[in-house]
Amino acid sequence: MNFSLSKAQFFLLLFIIQTGVVYISFQTPLIIYSQHSAWFVFILASLFHYGLLFFFERYYQSFFLNGFFRWVYLIYWLLITAVLIAYMGYVLASWVLPQTPEWLVVMLIVGLSLYANLVRPETVINIGVMLIPIIFLFVIFLMLAVPDLTWSNLFPVEWNHTKQIMAGMIHSMYAFFGIEMYLIYRPFLKQDLQVKGKPLLIYQLVLFIFYFLSVVFTQMFFALEEIQLIPEPIMYILKSQEVNFVKRLDIFFIYIWLSWSIVTVMIYGLSFRVLYLSKKRKHPKRSIVIYHLLLAILPLFVMQFQRIEFVKNSIHYVLIVFTILLPMMIICWNKWRGKRVS
């Protein structure tokens, strides 16, 4: 794989990976577990994330994956993508397409990702650019809900329940999943570009504001008892807004979210390509097709209410292992061995 990234492309790529799919739904578990202090816990989690970014930037050169860990990550991504696709299919089925067969929706999503991944890698890297304006739209239309917000929902902030704060921190992980991609794509950044300092801070700030708005809005819009019943709060907020020319914003935004998520799936496909083809392989095209075939089959086993719930309630532990602990371990080990990414 031979391509290089500019700073804008690199951070755009990360942004899409980190926000895709989960943006409409990660607020629910966070608020359920940390109650009124959710917004505060999220600030803490963001600080932690910023620290993590710093750590990754400092030591990314030591993130050398040997054959075993390469396979670990390939399989992890395959499964994560399958779960994401299953969730996308499930949300689509419950919100807009109750009758359309699930396999068809999954096929469409996977087919698009396959097409994008069979052409040159720059396509996947740059397609996120088209999402920038519509992501802006998301935030602008969320602002319509401002008159309906209840400020007193943000209080009281409770400090003394460490367990509650910890649970909230762990569930904030949803917002930051996919951060291991930083390590994967960082070596592709053009050699002479500086990322440390201002660019990293700007990225963190944009990501933080984008997520924080959604957390705060959700918290102020719904009562605590109510949020437990609402798995996709952002969609629900948009559903209750009415503008002059459109009665139901959620219908548009569910599809905007879908295209956004499809790009995320494509980027996971690209990461697979990058990692798998970092060694010379005989049939690069064939392996991409097989990866997507698996993607088309695996989600079908997850697309049920109870299984989706199970995944939602447990996947953050998996995320912690693969996005934080394992990269740190690998970096430390390689640091100790003195091995670096060439």
Binding site: D148, F221, F222, A223, L224, E225, E226, Y236, K239, S240
Partner: peptide
Amino acid sequence: LDLQTVGSMLFEQ
């Protein structure tokens, strides 16, 4: 009021 705000208040003590 609309249905959403009513629902939100119904869930709240």
